[in-house]
Amino acid sequence: MIGQYTRRKVTNYLMLTLCGLATLAAIAILLLVVGYTAVNGLPYLNLEFITQTARPLGEPGGGMRNEIIGTLILVGLASAIGLPVGLLAGSFLAEYGDGRVGTAVRLVADVLTGVPSVVIGIFVYIIMVRSMGTFSALSGGVALAIIMLPIVARTTEEMMRLIPATYREAALALGISRWRTIISVVIPGAMTGIVTGSMLAVARITGETAPLIFTALGNRFGFSGLLNPIAAMPLQIWRYATSAYDTWHQQAWAASFLLVIFVLFINISVRWLTARRYGYTR
């Protein structure tokens, strides 16, 4: 009896320690990544870095204005395409997705989530870049939108399904039509969840590099239209980091840090939003 009890206590203690260590490891890695990029990038991050364009090799200073703007445009484009389509697809899956079509769409979305982003880049390269004859901001946006799409659609669906049937029934019983019920009762109820999912999708595509290599290509100069190649931070980081010059390495660190901050900001906003959703203030 006593022996068993002691054994259980030891096992319990051991498992608790292991769990604690694993948690610590996960947090440590996150802190290490953020800390390392901060230590290496922060010294070179200044106003000039954000407002100036890149200078020729050897000249000191210069910044990533074009790349920052490029990334914003690409993310904006991707959101403009991916969010509405994802939202509608998600609504369809939630409201009418019980049949065979719904199952098929859901499967496709799940597979799409798992497709490596470089494959999506190649796909868009073949159908857009090759047929249009040029790398372009538009094709970059489309590639990012395709990555967003399944994430947005599936979270939208899940969030809408969480709205209890009683609210739908209440609306229908008031003589409100089905589509009006979806727009005015179901979607507002699921809104915080949908916004959360969308923001996570935006955070996810902001750092994507691989698909942009085949689509947006990069551009040393400023934005020159949606049908021309466009600069992007991840691309520039990749190029600078793989170069042989210390100044470029420094710039890559600074840009990396900026990206990490951006993604962190989005994640913290999401936490804040969800806390408000589930907190007692309604």
């Binding site: 009683t166 609210y167 209440a170 609306a171 008031l174 003589g175 409100i176 009762v185 109820g189």
Partner: peptide, 26 residues
């Protein structure tokens, strides 16, 4: 009209909007 087992006012709406829902959303 219909009233259900569990009270189910629309959670995203105010008291006023709940009552007006059937009229507004028509």
């Amino acid at each position: 009209g219909m009233v259900f087992q569990r009270p189910n006012p629309f959670p995203t709406m105010s008291v006023f909007d709940n009552v007006a829902a059937g009229l507004k959303l028509h």
